[in-house]
Design a protein around this nucleic acid. Structure first.
Length: 294
DNA sequence: CGCCAGGGCACCG
DNA sequence: CGGTGCCATGGC
C-alpha cells in the first residue's frame, strides 16, 4: 500500500525565460485567478495549484514532489529551452525583436485537449474576462470540487463524460449564448469517437485541422488554437484580429490582408516555431493595442 | 448608448 | 470561392 505523501511547498530555483504572469495572462488559458503580484491559483489537468514566482524562483504551494514532477513540470513546459527558441526566431527574423523583448517570459502551457477545445469554442467573439467567467461557471456546475485558496473555490473543468448529458438550455444558462449548440456538438463528436486525441496528435497538420473543423462552431482559428494549446502542435499559427493587425503592420505594409494569407505566411516563415512566434506577437500586439483606431 | 470582443455560419453574388 | 449580416453577452 502506498502511503500518501504529505503536502508541502515545492521550490524550483534558477528558472530562466519564464514569467508566471506573462505565461498565465497571455491569453492561452482561462481557468485561473490572480491572487497577487506574480501569484496565481490555477485549475488544470484535474488539479488545482497555488503558485508564485519571486524572480528566478518558483514556489508551488501545498503540493508534493511527485505531483510536481508528474504534472506541473510538464504543464509549464519547464524542460524546454526557450532561450534557444527565442534566439532561433530572432536570427530568422529581427522583426520579432520588440515582441520577444517585451514578452520574454511567455511559455506555452501543455493544456488538456478537451478543455482547450471547449474553451476556444467559447472564446469566439468574446473578451478574455468573459471567457474566464464562462469556463469557471461550467466547471463549478459540472466539474469536481478541488479545494479553495482563501475564499476562492476551485473546480476541475468537466471531462467529456461529465458533459455528455448537458442540455443546450443548461449550457445557455452558463451564458454561452449562440455557442451552446457548438459545445454540444463538440462533446458528441468526441464521445462518438470521431475525434481521437492520439490520432490528432499524429496526423499531418492539415488533416488534424480538418478533423477538428468537422465540429460545428470550430473554424480555422479555433482549430489552430486547439492544435497549438491543447495538442502541442507548435507548427500551428492561429490568426485572430490581433495577429491580423500586427502581421499587416510588420509584413504587409499596413495593407488589409486576408487571415488565410497571413496564416500561410506565418506557417512558411516560422515553420516548427510558428506557435511560439504567434504567441509572442499576439500578446505584444494586444498589450500595446497595435493597430487599434482611437 | 453604441461599439466590439483571441469567429463561424448561412446566405449571397 | 470571397464578401456581408447575424449570432448572445458583457466590458468599456
Amino acid at each position: 500500500m502506498k502511503v500518501k505523501e504529505a503536502k508541502s511547498d515545492v521550490i524550483v530555483k534558477d528558472i530562466k525565460d519564464f514569467d508566471l504572469g506573462q505565461t498565465i495572462e497571455c491569453g492561452q488559458c482561462f481557468h485561473f485567478i490572480k491572487l497577487g503580484e506574480n501569484e496565481y491559483g490555477i485549475s488544470a489537468k484535474g488539479k488545482m495549484l497555488h503558485i508564485k514566482q519571486e524572480k528566478e524562483k518558483l514556489i508551488f504551494f501545498d503540493t508534493t514532489p511527485d505531483e510536481f514532477e508528474q504534472v506541473w513540470r510538464e504543464y509549464f513546459d519547464l524542460d524546454r529551452d526557450y532561450a534557444a527558441i527565442k534566439a532561433h526566431l530572432l536570427k530568422e527574423d529581427s522583426k520579432l525583436k520588440e515582441a520577444i523583448e517585451m514578452m520574454w517570459g511567455v511559455r506555452l502551457l501543455k493544456q488538456d485537449f478537451f478543455e482547450t477545445l471547449i474553451s476556444f469554442i467559447i472564446s469566439q467573439n468574446k473578451q478574455i474576462p468573459h471567457i474566464k467567467q464562462i469556463v469557471a461557471e461550467i466547471s463549478k456546475r459540472y466539474g469536481d470540487y478541488l479545494g479553495c485558496i482563501g475564499q476562492e473555490e476551485f473546480y476541475s473543468f468537466p471531462t467529456v463524460e461529465q458533459m455528455l448529458n448537458i442540455s443546450e438550455e443548461e449550457l445557455r444558462a452558463c451564458k454561452t449564448g449562440f455557442r451552446a449548440p457548438y459545445i454540444k456538438n463538440a462533446v458528441d463528436t468526441v464521445v462518438g469517437g470521431r475525434l481521437e486525441e492520439s490520432s490528432l496528435r499524429n496526423a499531418e497538420l492539415d488533416m488534424c485541422r480538418e478533423s477538428l473543423m468537422q465540429i460545428k462552431g470550430v473554424g480555422t482559428k479555433v482549430a489552430n488554437c486547439v492544435m497549438l494549446f491543447g495538442l502541442q502542435r507548435y507548427e500551428a499559427f492561429p490568426v485572430d484580429v490581433w495577429i491580423k493587425r500586427i502581421m499587416e503592420y510588420l509584413y504587409f505594409d499596413g495593407k488589409d490582408t486576408s487571415k488565410e494569407k497571413i496564416e500561410q505566411f506565418g506557417v512558411e516563415r516560422f515553420g516548427a516555431y510558428g506557435g511560439f512566434a504567434q504567441q509572442y506577437l499576439f500578446y505584444y500586439g494586444k498589450t500595446i493595442s497595435l493597430g487599434v483606431k482611437k
